[in-house]
Write a protein that binds this DNA or RNA. Structure first.
Length: 258
DNA sequence: AAAGATAACAACCGCCAATGC
DNA sequence: TGCATTGGCGGTTGTTATCTT
């Protein structure tokens, strides 16, 4: 037996929404909310639409505070850098762009930004393969997002909180980078440097903090999650911001970056 | 001016994880 | 514990607008 359809395909309307349908949906949701059940909503609202279609219409077009129109240069940059890091996680990218929907960003990427990007970045995010479904939630819960601006290992990596870059790391590809595996990025290590959003910086060979910056003086010594957590703790770095990175190590032993 | 090509964007489809029974 | 249902997501398609020849 196959999966039951979410609605009766024969009786629901498809295609573009009319202004009347928009008004009905908007009025119903503003008055009653979604009641946590999109499937039942169209019937209650007097719409001959699939519940999924109603949800999509509301989320992408009708709900308040949706931003339509041109993307700013800042938004362009953020989308590009996030895509280069995490790939086509449109909902996560959209969460960093207030007022924008995942569908909007996806369309914008496919029609415009993709053409602007270098082929390697546009087609193959450097580290997206290190994110799997199991830790997506960690990513979503993190207030910090990472992006690598260069396709080769060991160059500039920026971390964003919402749309604000909070810090940029620079690393060198070094034979002493103990945690480098499969060509992924390592932020522990000698000769690393960091510049934070307030202009302060910290460089090289020391365990240091500057805003959310953490550089370990000894890349060889941090082999366990607990050690890393301890390091974060003793340097008084917000654990909320860094939990994701710690958990990343725990679940994906191929990617270590701080 | 017309026809074809391309771009932009709205909407649909199918898969999967979460949830409730 | 297993199954059915739902919500959410990303990929894809369809339609309309705009551009080019």
């Amino acid at each position: 037996m196959g999966r039951a359809p979410c609605c009766d395909k024969a009786s629901v309307k498809k295609g573009p929404w009319s202004p009347e349908e928009d008004a009905k949906l908007k009025e119903y949701i503003e008055k009653n909310g979604t009641c946590g059940n999109w499937i039942a909503l169209p019937l209650k609202a007097g719409l001959r639409r699939c519940g999924k279609s109603c949800r999509l219409r509301w989320l992408n077009y009708l709900r308040p505070n949706i931003k339509h129109g041109e993307f700013s240069d800042d938004e362009d940059r953020l989308i590009c850098t996030l895509f280069s890091t995490i790939g086509s996680r449109w909902s996560i990218i959209a969460a960093q762009l207030p007022g924008r929907t995942d569908n909007d960003i996806k369309n914008y990427w496919n029609t415009k930004l993709k053409k602007k990007m270098p082929i390697g970045i546009a087609q193959s995010p450097l580290i997206s393969s290190s994110y799997n479904n199991n830790n997506n939630s960690l990513l979503q819960n993190s207030s910090i997002m990472a992006s690598q601006n260069n396709s080769s290992l060991g160059n500039n990596i920026s971390y964003y909180s919402n749309t604000t870059p909070v810090m940029t790391f620079s690393t060198l590809t070094s034979p002493n980078l103990a945690h480098s595996r499969k060509g992924n990025v390592v932020m522990f290590g000698e000769r690393a440097s960091c510049t934070s959003s307030n202009g302060s910086s910290c460089t090289t060979n020391r365990a240091a903090t500057n805003d959310n910056c953490l550089i370990s003086e000894n890349p060889l010594d941090y082999n366990s999650i607990e050690e890393i957590k301890q390091l974060i703790s003793t340097n008084n770095i917000s654990s909320n911001n860094l939990n994701f990175f710690v958990d990343e190590i725990k679940t994906e032993d191929t990617l270590l970056y701080y």
